[in-house]
Amino acid sequence: MAYNDKVLDHYENPRNVGSMDKNESDVGTGMVGAPACGDVMRLQIKVNDEGVIDDAKFKTYGCGSAIASSSLVTEWIKGKTVDEALSIKNKEIADELALPPVKIHCSVLAEDAIKAAVDDYRKKQD
């Protein structure tokens, strides 16, 4: 399949690849996967005292669209509050990357990863 330029750019130069210590209290880790294709995605956020996401890291094993979707959201959520990050919808990701219909699930995965990371972070604050 021919990938769109933005997908290729993120695929070839993924932003914010890496990991943070998942045991730190200010780090939230989201693990999501797509059983149908066996893709796995990890998204981590580091949240400061004001509830703003200072840093985000991801690691994705999957197709170009899944990598691009997660790379893109790490860029988007940095500097946003946790609530703002939660408001990101998969459609915005899919539109930005011009994902074809068969790859929409990759953007859903990225949206779910944000939710999972925020959930994990919030559980630690309780």
Binding site: A34, A36, R42
Partner: peptide, 19 residues
């Protein structure tokens, strides 16, 4: 369940191991 795929909630421990 989620045998049809998609991004259904899954066991994070399993995903962690897969990763």
């Amino acid at each position: 369940g989620s045998e049809s795929g998609g991004a259904a909630p899954q066991d994070p421990m399993f995903l962690m191991e897969s990763m």
